[in-house]
Amino acid sequence: MTAALDEPRATARRAPLTRLLRSELRMVLRRPRTLIGLALLALVPVVAGIGIAIATGSSSGESVGDGLASLVEGNGLLLPIFGLTMSMTMLLPLTGAMLAADALAGEAANGTLRGLLVAPVGRARLLAVKAFGVAAVSLFAVLLMAATGIVAGLLLLGGDGMLTSSGTTLPFGAGLGRVLLTVVLVTVQVWALAAVALAVSAWTEHPLIVVVVSLGVVIVSGVLSVIPALDWLTPALITTSWEAIPEVVKDPLPTATLLTGVLRAGCYILIGYSIALSRMLTRDG
């Protein structure tokens, strides 16, 4: 390096990471699509709560549904868990896929990814920032649903503590703990799908492709899991953990099952981010 080129400058080599993360979050949370998605998700538990409250009022004695639904009646703390597990079938995976699609493919199409690359933000760092944005906003979405679910549940359905599916009643604090545990489990599963979506997102400039492929993964997993001849494949499918989430309302907690679900999500996160990283490092900006 020549002396002339290397005149002393009291400047950092890289922009501070926290500044990048803050900027990313601010941007994602200003995107109209994100805001609409969050608002819709927040409404899900409220709408479910109103529906169950009406169903309970009109049909006395009859159970309002099967599975968790039958337990939500008069059991308000279960409403957020019901809302989250219900949304895990489609809405939340869709949200994760959408966030991941916008993070790389959308920004590439917009030309904004290029701006960050020449700043420069290193490619691995850029992926980390994007992954953080997706992860933080998915967590926020799930927390938001839990919050509206708790409020709507307690106001519309009432209940003292939480009745588990095993027939025991947990005190309010422990019930709240179950809601938070559900938040963690659901968030990790959304992260897993978002990681897969982010890998796709790194390969394309069309956000819609990312959403379509991600939903394809969900649907194909669902189909494979019901084919008896492919039972051996079931423990490896991304959707298998999703189906186990309602088990958080068992007492005692089936820790092993839930932990397996988290580990499975971890494998998908690792695979998704590995592929995304390799693509980011070689991709033309």
């Binding site: 423990p235 490896a236 494998c267 690792l270 695979i271 981010y273 590995s274 990283l277 390799s278 693509r279």
Partner: peptide, 20 residues
Amino acid sequence: ALSVAAAGTATGVVGLVLLA
């Protein structure tokens, strides 16, 4: 990049196989 992808993907797949 390719070795990172290979290593990460392989670890993930091995994890899934172990779970299965």
